[in-house]
């Protein structure tokens, strides 16, 4: 328990520092977004759609999947699961409270069991070493983000993709999968390349951004097109839902590119990128926050041009 509380306090302090760093206005925006997002989920749950509260599970799974401290904890001889159960429980509390409020014990039990088991998940070491090296090797070298990304996150993408295809007969399955696929492919832009690669690929900051955005959009479209086709085949009457998620995905891909270059420093890794993307994507779920992702994309594009200019 001592270790659990230690890590809970540590993560709380880290999050406080993230929020302090982005400034009061941005911090309030982020916190507001979280509150509105949670409220939107509650509104759905209160109307009888209790399963919506289970959205917390893929969110926690995303956090678990991108954890990089497994080896570090092993080196210290600490449990890889214990430090995360309490933080996950705290993050899931509003959703657990919703399930408790509507008395959906099955979902509550499922969520608690998942929170207990999720920190134990660490699948990659059990897969053959060279298996993922083949993934993405058919892509040209210019698309190095996707080559690396598919090798690193290929398992999650394959599982999501197959789950989407298998469950496409259900109306909501493909849109949900598309949402998380967009998040997964956007984090391919987590790592900033060396500065020499910028000038090797493009002649100006604007040229580079257009090139990168088009590549990201094209590859994401290629990955998701079969799922979109399946969804339209089974549920043509809900074409507007899948179209909306496709737009979310497209904006997220562009956002990932301009966000990376707006903070570009050669070789830098953007740790908070996936959380930022999730927050921006969540804006699409709250109607009056709709303009925000577009506004953020344009602002980051301008900032990227300024940030990249010294390197050209």
């Amino acid at each position: 328990m001592r270790i659990s509380f230690f890590f809970l306090k540590l993560h709380a302090r880290r999050w406080y520092r993230y929020l302090s760093e982005i400034g009061l206005v941005h911090a309030l925006f982020v916190l507001g977004l979280v509150v509105f997002g949670t409220y939107a989920v509650w509104a759905q749950v209160a109307q009888g759609r209790q399963y919506i509260a289970l959205i917390v599970l893929p969110l926690l799974h995303s956090l678990q999947y991108y954890r990089r401290d497994h080896q570090f904890l092993v080196l210290l001889g600490l449990s890889v699961a214990v430090p995360y159960r309490l933080p996950y429980l705290v993050l899931a509390l509003p959703f657990l409270a919703m399930m408790l409020a509507v008395g959906h014990w099955a979902y509550l039990a499922l969520s608690v069991a998942a929170i207990f088991l999720l920190p134990l998940l660490h699948m990659r070491p059990f897969l053959p070493h060279n298996w993922f090296l083949q993934l993405g090797s058919f892509l040209p070298y210019r698309l190095f983000e996707w080559r690396c990304g598919l090798r690193q996150y290929g398992l999650a993408i394959i599982i999501l993709w197959l789950a989407g295809a298998a469950l496409s007969v259900f109306p909501v399955a493909v849109p949900i999968v598309l949402f998380f696929l967009a998040l997964n492919t956007s984090v391919f832009q987590l790592m900033a390349e060396p500065k020499e690669m910028l000038t090797a690929m493009a002649s100006s900051p604007g040229h580079l951004l257009r090139l990168k955005a088009m590549d990201q959009l094209a590859l994401h479209a290629l990955l998701t097109a079969p799922l979109v086709a399946l969804d339209l085949w089974f549920h043509p009457q809900y074409w507007y839902i899948v179209l909306y998620v496709v737009v979310i995905g497209a904006v997220t891909q562009v956002q990932a590119v301009v966000y990376k270059y707006s903070l570009y420093r050669p070789g830098q890794r953007f740790e908070s990128d996936s959380v930022f993307q999730l927050l921006v994507m969540s804006s699409f779920l709250v109607p009056f926050l709709l303009p925000i992702p577009f506004w953020v994309a344009v602002a980051n594009y301008k900032k990227s041009i300024r940030q990249l200019t010294p390197y050209f």
Binding site: F6, R13, L78
Partner: peptide, 26 residues
């Protein structure tokens, strides 16, 4: 075993003292 790896892992946004406090857990 105590193992110093070539590339070390540090949680983002932690202080040096917090890092050593994590090690003290062991």
């Amino acid at each position: 075993i105590a193992f110093l790896e070539t590339e070390q892992f540090f949680y983002p946004k932690i202080t040096g003292r917090e890092y050593l406090e994590i090690c003290r857990l062991a």
